[in-house]
Write a protein that binds this DNA or RNA. Structure first.
Lengths: 254, 254
DNA sequence: TAAATAGTGTCTATGAGACAGTATAGT
DNA sequence: ACTATACTGTCTCATAGACACTATTTA
């Protein structure tokens, strides 16, 4: 029989790729024009990579699952809670951590409405929502990450890293996370996990297109989404134009 | 700084859910009618669960990635090699292994053509291709696994296990593996990874429908697949009917 | 010729994209 | 009146399913 003490064991980390959109609640929204995809990062307070930005995460503890570890670390480090978290993959290259043998269980997590103020926790200056921009050109995924102060954190073209200020192999984890996000949005309506309970159809479009890279007219987008939506009696507060009806996700969808 | 020695660490296993189809090579095929989806299992030679069937897998060793560990164990235990292997998820419930704290990185793997004779390795009687049948009814996935001698190994309806002779939480891992397989076949043409290099269109249909649960006429199935196929100059050897042209997967597909 | 599967063509319904045009809010 | 967005409807094209029909092989 295998005896645990007889064998070498790695340290196991759980890291979360957390996406969100910086829109205020749709029901109480003003004339917000720009809705941008954001990625949650924390500033490392310890060596190695002290001072560098990294994914929120930490080490698995006895008695918890890796999901619980990811959510616990996310909460501890950023004060953010995620209603939706899914396994991404395990990163286990033997040299990925200078401290030694550490494998990382990576998760994809989403927050409904990103209130930027929710970033707090042990050290408020130690977490931020970075701007996330992705483009696909001839089969290559280009990702750019920018800190709130404008510092470019990552410029990645395919697997080539033009510039990368992130700790460990987190750039690769982020790329994998975004690929999965796109896939889930396209095939499994994951876009709704990024939206508040009630939303106007036009609130869906910017997020949807930023993630999928697709572009449609607002009319056709409406028609595509209509079968997945449940009409409500509510309307958003008007800007300088007609008010929009609010919808919720129709249940009974995969 | 985090020092590895200061903290508790789990043992890490890599387990593979390996699917295959029991069709002989299409180019030298006889009048084979039944093509069935199979799952690769090994018989445990040690405690715990000695004598029970389980997924091929084993413990991660220092210096290798979890993918390498999965492929190494697969080869050692069954002699099977897999051209396609992908991360599924991590199973880490604290009580999932009676030996102690063991988490499992689960993989989905496919073999192109299953020559049933390839099951060998350290102990030939210790591995088998079990019959795998899945049905979806009102949102619930029903899975049944049967050993080659007819013994029912698993009957699972949704998350309810009617009967389960498998070791550990491998029944849940298998269910997750099949869900992912179906998803990849539907959205990303993974069906081709289960096929030999050359195949007739009709060879695709049974596997495709067994996995997706969809049903179409052979004519419409042909039309759906045509844009993904590259015609070749070869034909299969005839049975008691017209010979079929062989195709290969058209490249440049996701 | 019969049996069985391979393969073509046709009709129809559905969904996506292009785009014309109407509705309703604020300024 | 003007502007900006919400929303409806229409046309066209591509794709999926139903199904009639032809082609080719062995028995």
């Amino acid at each position: 029989m295998y005896r645990i003490e007889d064998y070498d064991r790695p340290s196991v980390a759980a890291d979360a790729v957390v996406f969100g959109f910086d829109t205020a609640d749709a029901a109480s929204r003003g004339g917000l024009k720009q809705r941008k995809l954001k990625l949650l990062l924390v500033k490392r307070g310890e060596e190695p990579f002290r001072g560098a930005w990294s994914l929120p995460g930490g080490f698995l503890q006895r008695g918890e699952t890796v999901e619980q570890a990811a959510l616990r670390e996310l909460s501890e480090e950023t004060g953010v809670s995620s209603p939706k978290i899914m396994h991404l993959r395990v990163f286990s290259a033997p040299d990925r951590d200078p401290r030694g043998w550490v494998i990382s269980c990576a998760f994809l997590a989403l927050t409904k409405t990103v209130a930027l103020s929710t970033v707090s926790g042990s050290d408020a200056a130690a977490a931020c929502w970075a701007d996330f921009v992705a483009e696909e050109s001839n089969g290559c995924l280009n990702i750019r990450l920018t800190a709130p102060d404008g510092t470019p954190l990552l410029d990645r073209y395919g697997d080539a890293e033009i510039s990368n200020l992130l700790a460990f192999d987190h750039a690769a984890i982020i790329a994998e996370g975004f690929r999965r996000l796109r896939d889930e949005v396209i095939h499994h309506d994951m876009i709704f996990d990024l939206m508040p309970e009630l939303f106007a159809i036009s609130d869906l479009q910017q997020p949807y297109e930023a993630i999928t890279g697709m572009h449609t007219s607002s009319q056709n987008f409406r028609k595509k989404m209509a079968p997945k939506l449940q009409e409500t009696e509510f309307f958003n507060e008007a800007a300088a134009h007609r008010t929009a009806r609010l919808y919720r996700r129709k249940d009974g969808l995969s």
